[in-house]
Amino acid sequence: MKPILEIKDLHVHFYTYAGVVKAIAGVSFTVYEGETFALVGETGCGKSVTSRAITRLIESPGRIVKGSVIYHTKDGRKIDLLKLPEAELRAIRGKEIAYIFQDPTAALDPLYTSGYQVAEAMVVHRTVRSWKDGIKRAIEILRSVLIPDPEKRVKAYPHELSGGMKQRVVIGTSLSNRPRVLIADEPTTALDVTIQAQILKLIESLKRRHNATVMLITHNMGVVAEIADRVAVMYAGKIVEIGNVFQIFKNPQHPYTKGLLKAVPNPLIKVEKLESIPGTVPNLINPPPGCRFHPRCPFVMDVCRVEEPPMVEVEPGHQVACWLYTKR
């Protein structure tokens, strides 16, 4: 497997009124070419921030404090996206690394037609020669994201489309330049289950057709199980466990991963009582010392309160950051 994105020791801080929020504190992981990599965690765990930091889409008061994002280009060069001049980064962002955000309504400009918005990305990155070609390509793209009657829909304004249709247009926009990496940040959270299934299927088939790499950001364990190859579980700005989807679901190691899986009802199994994780997510201005999960952990030991656990491999490709698996 060839790596395509290597995130190393990423730190992102937000300088808010209440103090410095250490949203991301030393996140490292590698995404391999052609896989679907899922970053899961609850609200505020930093999964979204991580995905945006990859192409420096962090807005004030946030700042990338430390770390590197190595991107392997098609011709085999390695470039650090965090050190790239803005102009060069812009040529990569949207073209080679494209995003799909959660809220399709916010992602589309209500003043322009859907065709215009799909064509715009291509015109900006000069993948088409003229606007006219762009619109023609847009029709093809809308057809490829399974929008019925694309000749008519290119002329439709966002308010004339349903939520699912809008998300298809957004996906179309992201795919218009045939990106190598598609970062989908909660792409189906705003949608209904039946539509969600359609969109997930669409992303999968497009990924296969374009041979793209997908990085999926979600809080929904069901969606992860459905389409991910490898999974990283985040908690309070850190990755606590990484593994392939079977390792994570069948053999979870970190107490947080275990808790998370038990807190989600599986409708196929008769559950007498859901197990809940006591307490709440810590505030990241003054995160707990040591392991950030220790105040909520049922297996907490003395060492957890003082020292941060390192990432250790428990089986091939399956890493966990927990003192339970580390010999001191």
Binding site: T194, G222, A225, L268
Partner: peptide, 27 residues
């Protein structure tokens, strides 16, 4: 039936085996 089929199940082994019934179109 369609709703249940579309429901993401937190079990990768099951979801890779289950038949995909797709519900077409939107409400």
């Amino acid at each position: 039936q369609a709703l249940l089929a579309a429901l993401p199940i937190p079990d990768p082994e099951y979801t890779r085996k289950k038949p995909k019934i797709e519900i077409r179109g939107e409400p």
